[in-house]
Design a protein around this nucleic acid. Structure first.
Lengths: 334, 334
DNA sequence: TTGAAAGCGCTAACAC
DNA sequence: GTGTTAGCGCTTTCAA
């Protein structure tokens, strides 16, 4: 067994409570004693057992971060940003992946509940009711989803969707397809709504296709349907879908952006690398990671303060996957 | 405070130990009592506190997974595979990222030490000595690095490097540059050694360039040096470096594979998507995640059995970033 | 400023 | 088959 507070106390010739105080309330202990205790602790390689500490204090110094899919390049920057920011505040963050499965998500929340002080839920697939129910056990901050009564960090996807649609409109597209994400995704609904109203305002049609799995494969499988829809411009729920679509289109010999313009969401790395480079709505993932940790720590450290809501701006990055609509549409009488 | 074993005991009219047994040794309790206890537990929403349990049993049911960089697409598949496999064995896995910083790595190991039963160290940047020292506190399985005395899971990068070099040799390349990874990377040394001997055997020169950060930027920054080296073929430590290099080369107007052939390592998603599609050595990350969990659980559950070593095969995936060396080299007298 | 002692939620002998 | 009890490593009153 590792070295405990008892070992330190014994060899330093003090009581355990003194050792404890040396670490958790140094100002309450005589400087000389403190120095001696610290020296012994150092020598023995003593490290306070956070789990045991948590048992009495109810505080672990850990945060949990649950994401839908760690393999989606959208998440890692957010995770890293959260970890770095938490570390500055002397917290550690443990990450887990739900595989887009609400049941796994619930189980993870329960497992984390006793081992961390608070939880960051990124793109949760759980129902609002389930979230509320679980929230009594542990503080949450929800990212990428609006849940009333909870602290949330949102990225303004509605604004992003509007910009994307307007961009397509400006290029002369009059029939636009939206490749929706999972039906449990709050962002997907927000995108759909905003895209629909922007299309309407611009006198264009919006065909909503989906739900689609938020993966490359989701995009590949949707290619045929996109073609069938007669759209000249496509807005995809995320870059993974957009990339899968572009690859499938390439197989089918459909030129992007010549015959079909494609816009994604997220601005993940492969989006910059694919050919044609993807026009996409960049998400402020790094800022979101920071904001989420801030909000959570506020909740954890001063529960009295209420919940917070943060909405971060998104911005359209125009690259090479969008171009003027093919002539028939452009030439259409006004 | 959440519901504890005491609450369940009280409302079920039994002693806490009976409740405890209901969960940890059900066969020792009268079926009727068990049913009643379970019912009450369910109703009250009781969940055993794993941290408290760990205090007495020394077992948490959690595993830790530490990676150098969660944002490197190489890791997520390994992480997912480990999580899924651990879940089958009724363990949870918590992930943390070291940002390639050995100090952070050490701190994370210490933090994890008391909260998990064992640790998966993926591509650790710590010295072998430090790893040994920390290992007394908690069982390790090391992935992507050979550490004697410890259980390891290796991917056969030497074989991969050999295949890659031979592939370039067959295409007529006689001057090959190797973009090395971080000097603390065990794999990088292994690749270098294997590539050197394969090049030698094939009568080609190998110029080792680096160390380079294992990132896109690392590749971008190395482009000038690659050009200066006069190499016609490049083997990069990983796909990120290869991709960064290709992008920089594109900026500089150097044709890939026309003027320069590029091979990467890992086979991450963007490698399939970049143009030209990247020739690369595929790493068995999914198998590695499984194997690592198996090895760790063996260590955790029956410490008596010794350590294990697993080496998994890699395979060269030939795509479009490699082609015959430009004519001067090809035409060179034999 | 320090020691003594109770207790956090749970398990594991040991009795009954 | 179930209750009793003594901790696991630590913090936190309360006294001294």
């Amino acid at each position: 067994m590792a070295v405990t507070i008892r070992d330190v106390a014994r060899t330093a010739g003090v009581h355990v409570s003194t050792v404890s105080r040396t670490f958790s309330a140094p100002h309450l202990v005589n400087p000389e004693t403190r120095v001696r205790v610290l020296a012994v602790a150092e020598e023995l390689g003593y490290r306070p057992n956070r789990a045991a500490r948590a048992l009495t204090t109810g505080r672990t110094g850990n945060l949990g971060l649950i994401v839908a899919d760690i393999a989606n390049p959208f998440f890692p920057p957010l995770i890293k940003s959260a970890q770095a920011h938490a570390r500055e505040r002397d917290y550690h963050v443990f990450v887990a992946d739900t595989d887009e499965d609400p049941r796994v998500e619930e189980e993870l929340i329960r497992t984390f509940a006793k081992q961390v002080d608070g939880l960051l839920l990124c793109s949760p697939r759980l129902s609002g009711r389930a979230i509320d129910r679980l929230n009594v056990e542990i503080p949450f901050v929800v990212v990428n989803r609006q849940v009333k009564g909870l602290s949330t960090v949102l990225m303004d996807v509605a604004q992003g969707a509007r910009s994307a649609v307007e961009h397509l409109l400006r290029l002369g597209h009059r029939r636009i397809a939206l490749l929706a994400g999972p039906s449990s995704s709050w962002n997907s609904s927000a995108i759909e709504e905003a895209a629909a109203s922007a299309a309407l305002a611009g006198g264009a049609e919006l065909a909503v296709l989906g739900p689609n799995p938020p993966t490359e494969q989701g995009g590949e499988l949707a290619a045929a349907e996109v073609l069938r829809s007669g759209a000249t411009g496509v807005l995809a729920y995320n870059d993974l879908i957009a990339i899968g679509l572009i690859e499938a289109l390439d197989e089918l010999g459909v030129a992007v952006p010549g015959q079909l313009s494609v816009v994604g969401f997220d601005d993940i790395m492969p989006a910059r690398v694919i050919s044609p480079k993807l026009t996409t709505v960049a998400m402020p993932t790094v800022a979101a990671g920071r904001a989420a940790v801030d909000a959570l720590l506020r909740l954890v450290e001063s529960p009295a303060t209420g919940t917070t809501r943060t909405t971060l701006d998104t911005s359209l990055v125009v690259r090479a996957s969008t171009a003027a609509a093919p002539s028939p549409a452009v030439a259409r009488p006004r």
